[in-house]
Design a binder for these strands. Sequence first.
DNA 1: ACCTGAACACCGTTCAAGT
DNA 2: ACCTGAACACCGTTCAAGT
Lengths: 218, 218
Amino acid sequence: MMGKLTAGMIAERALEIGDAEGLDAVTIRRLAADLGVTPMALYWHYKNKEQLLIGMADHLIGGFAPEPADERPWQEQLRDLTRGLVRTLRAHPCAKDVIEQIDAVEVPNFLAVWDLALGLARDAGFSVEESCLITKYLLQSAIAIADAPVHHQAGRSDEEVARIVRVKRLGLETLPVERYPHLVEMAGPLVGAMSPEVCDTFGVDLVLAGIEALAAGR
Amino acid sequence: MMGKLTAGMIAERALEIGDAEGLDAVTIRRLAADLGVTPMALYWHYKNKEQLLIGMADHLIGGFAPEPADERPWQEQLRDLTRGLVRTLRAHPCAKDVIEQIDAVEVPNFLAVWDLALGLARDAGFSVEESCLITKYLLQSAIAIADAPVHHQAGRSDEEVARIVRVKRLGLETLPVERYPHLVEMAGPLVGAMSPEVCDTFGVDLVLAGIEALAAGR
DNA sequence: ACCTGAACACCGTTCAAGT
DNA sequence: ACCTGAACACCGTTCAAGT
């Protein structure tokens, strides 16, 4: 009805649904209904659902276009890259789930980030194999840092989310305190939202500090 | 036919299928058929599929029973814990996928590991919020380090796996070398298996070094 | 307590056909 | 080139019923 359907439109709408209601809600049929089209129409633009998920990831990472490598020290560049990744992931509640379901190699926009990170790791003096491990570690760590503790898996209202968090906290608080002293004590912070400052500074520092420490030993 | 069905047996068989053929192959119906039982029989032992996945994770982590906190320095204890996690995860090809699909809070055996890690982080001098982030980071990092580059998602023979790896490597090698110089150069190591020594030493060092460096600043 | 049988509402996907 | 319609093989799950 309103202009032609494009792969980009589909990926965008899929991300909206995923962010708002959880990735499980992103169904070929549901997505097609939202777009006012037949489920089969999507198969013209994406070969199958896996390709759609790759399209979503590509669109997601596309919003984070890191600067190409320059002459600054690698530490600084790697820090910018990590910070950018964390920020991008945190902007999309379903980012974690999307990335987990696909192979990064298939995501064009991710390849640029990956290549940049690999180059910086090499600059730091790490071997080829070590650099491979570091870049995987970097992505996983960014996910750990960006991941909100509340699963948005079922697009609930704020009240529903608050209820789920309360139930979870209670579940931890009522654990046997002699066996799980720390879980009981930290139940609140564990299930609650992480403060953005801690994420962006402490979290990024944590990742970078490890890499820098090992680089110093090379 | 051969003794009663138990929740443990079900989780065990599910893990076997998951490790051999990928988690997608773990289906209520398929699992029931393997156990010589009706699909509905499983619903007596697990309320739904989510609970079954939690059971799988619990059984998986159960194989890794870390020593309770003792008087050794926290660095040493945290290192042992990380190494144990990595080893356990690497022993089960589907571990990553199982853990990603569930909430760690629901997995009893994981709570013990988590509590231990939280206590060690507190010992290191980190704040409550920082300790929460560190423990999440620890799990994600262990996953990154343990994760085999070859997805076992479709229980293929070794020859099939080798073919997939070759195709993937070729995909990277044929990328425009001026845009992705490092991906093209490191295509082999990127898609190939990581050597166990690098995983167990360099990988664990990487995670620990970051934590230790930040602890020194506390 | 433990399991079966039939049925329901949903998937992703193929294939032929329309324009 | 782009989309529809009908059909297929598969899910997880409920519910009543059996022993």
